[in-house]
Design a protein around this nucleic acid. Structure first.
Length: 279
DNA sequence: AAATTTTACAACCGCAGTTGC
DNA sequence: TGCAACTGCGGTTGTAAAATT
């Protein structure tokens, strides 16, 4: 990409010679990255306007901050968004809405920008293909009762060898669950989901189980006799499982209410899942 | 194989909140 | 207390790469 320079205009009235400078825009070069990395490594994060000046970068402080947080930071996690992360994003978005930085707090190594991009490119695209608004009840219910259970199903399938039905780890998981605080001061618990930031060998199902209130009923609640996991293990198909229940809701009944009487005809697995899962 | 369209993601912009003088 | 500078957030845009026609 060609270098783009712009004459910076500052809001303060009289501009000194120092304030009128070339500001570079566009992609960062390796040289710029090195300068920024070296400076932040030595002096730490923060005071970004100072960073821009002292590191000899013809960039705005905002640009330096963004580059560091989204790309250069050593703990930035790269690669595809995993199934577990997708599930987390869907769950957290249902709670927080477009508060990307808040959501990012629960996905160590992922940036708000990355999560926002994921939402726009994947989730909004699906809503568009299903011809409904991403904020519509229809789409939210589809996510809740179709997409998320299916993600859990796939996660379970991918770890089925280490997943025995799992009641024991629910208890354990509940002690390190995500604490989402309605007042807006959600926090990350100590030891929360270490597998996202390291190479923990903790079983995947435990991690997923810790995510939400969906968990107990999803993985099965002996007291209530509801066990989706058993349905799966018995070979019941996703839509053919007549008695499965998520979040205390009977899916076929809800689907009929939400999607109309012919939901099984129009919103069958072929139609929905081919769009939602082949991403 | 070339042209066109779509996707993924890095980066920018404007705004609001915070901080320091 | 008011103002200017700084910071962080969410929305949007630009573009390289991949996929499709």
């Amino acid at each position: 990409m060609m270098d783009i320079y712009e004459q910076a205009g500052f809001s303060s009235g009289n501009q000194s010679e120092e304030e009128i400078m070339d500001v570079r825009k566009g992609s960062w070069t390796a040289e710029e990255d090195n300068k920024l990395m070296e400076y932040v490594t030595v002096h730490g994060e923060g005071r970004w306007n100072l960073v821009a000046r002292c590191a000899g970068l013809k960039r705005t402080g905002k640009s330096c901050r963004l580059r560091w947080l989204n790309y250069l930071r050593p703990d930035v996690r790269r690669g595809n968004i995993t199934l577990e992360e997708q599930l987390l994003i869907l769950e957290l978005h249902s709670h927080w809405g477009n508060r990307w930085s808040k959501i990012a707090q629960y996905l160590p190594g992922r940036t708000d920008n990355e999560i926002k991009n994921y939402w726009r490119t994947r989730v909004q695209k699906q809503a568009k293909q299903l011809k409904c608004d991403v904020n519509s009840k229809q789409f939210r219910d589809t996510m809740r009762y179709v997409w998320m259970p299916r993600l859990k199903e796939r996660i379970q399938a991918s770890t089925s060898k280490t997943f025995p039905g799992q009641p024991a780890t629910n208890t354990e998981a509940s002690t390190q669950s995500v604490q989402v605080n309605e007042s807006g001061s959600g926090r990350i618990e100590p030891n929360f989901m270490p597998e996202f930031s390291g190479s923990s060998s903790e079983s995947l199902d435990t991690r997923v189980s810790s995510l939400s209130d969906l968990t107990v009923e999803y993985w099965g609640n002996p007291q209530q006799g509801v066990n989706y996991a058993d349905n799966l293990q018995n070979g019941s198909g996703f839509f053919s499982a007549g008695n499965w229940c998520v979040d205390g809701v009977d899916f076929p009944a809800v689907a009929e209410e939400v999607m109309g009487g012919d939901w099984m005809m129009e919103w069958n697995e072929e139609n929905i899942w081919s769009q939602l899962c082949e991403m």
